[in-house]
Design a protein around this nucleic acid. Sequence first.
DNA 1: GGCTTTTATGTTGCAATGCAACATATAGGG
DNA 2: CCCTATATGTTGCATTGCAACATAAAAGCC
Lengths: 183, 183
Amino acid sequence: MGKIAEITGETGLNGLDGCQMTVTRPTFPAPGHDHDRCTAEAISHAETICARRAQKFTPIRRQVLQALLSSHRPLGAYEVIEELAKSMPRPAPITVYRALDFLMENGLVHRIESRNAFLACAHDHDESAMVAFLICDRCGSVGEIPAAPVAQSVSDAARTTGFAPKMSVVEITGTCAHCQKAA
Amino acid sequence: MGKIAEITGETGLNGLDGCQMTVTRPTFPAPGHDHDRCTAEAISHAETICARRAQKFTPIRRQVLQALLSSHRPLGAYEVIEELAKSMPRPAPITVYRALDFLMENGLVHRIESRNAFLACAHDHDESAMVAFLICDRCGSVGEIPAAPVAQSVSDAARTTGFAPKMSVVEITGTCAHCQKAA
DNA sequence: GGCTTTTATGTTGCAATGCAACATATAGGG
DNA sequence: CCCTATATGTTGCATTGCAACATAAAAGCC
């Protein structure tokens, strides 16, 4: 299986300092990958980010992130609640939403609009970088790819219309390589 | 209905006070456009489509489409209900959802995922054509642009990973030309 | 026209999503 | 130690979305 095409390398010019997680992350998590390690890295990345910004990476925020990391697919807020309920008194929805907001503000979690769900960010990309999501309709896993070309097309369109783009949502559903093989 | 690239149709007016200025470029709204005519055309287009497919363009479906056309901005399902309630006994949510499903299946209405809202399709584009939406965060109006180039770059990127794309959601929020001027 | 089949609507009820408002706790700074 | 800013807990509810079943309306057939 190896890594499947990694378009990840060129993700947003790596930000302001030497923060690089393993940038060689495949677009889709390989079925047999070292998940513990990948989770640990993501958590430690989060710690770094929060420390740098003097933001608090509280237990709840950590656990919400961990819940999302436990699967490489987007979880609904209430699925996160279920996850957390396994290891603590069931948190109220608002609690989880607040943690999710925090994590999104800090670029650690993405919201998948077309699913009303949340996904732990797999890459260390510049926060302003445009990303696109490839959502597998079989296994539900989500790949994250840089969408610079999309950004280009969009700003072309913007130029003609005078529209000033700020935030983008690019979500493509389809079938991932693994599931195609499996079929 | 005219040809594809008449990207002019959207309007900014929609009752949110800030946004009623002339368009310099034809792309976003033409505030002074003949709205009755553009609505009439859309309805008649719907009739054509339905007739061609032997689908029934029932009163409810017509009224839902009309509600969406009346505003030129995406409406939530419950906003549609409110609209309809003005001219008939208030329909149940499920009734409106069913009509919306029908209209979407026939390419007459788009769902704006990032808003949980629905927009009457402004163009006469091929159903399989990929479109992108430019959503103004001030006035709420939405521009619909053909997104062939976006589609291209996305599916290139996607295919590199072995991903087989089916459906796409491209929604860009930002500020439309009118609202930029107004600011 | 009657009869059947298909399709569309109406009714009832509820699950899922999301957050507001206020109360309380907790971490740091002075 | 107090004060302030931030984080979390509690209560309650609005919004979104649809399932399941009942009824009506249209289309096809003899």
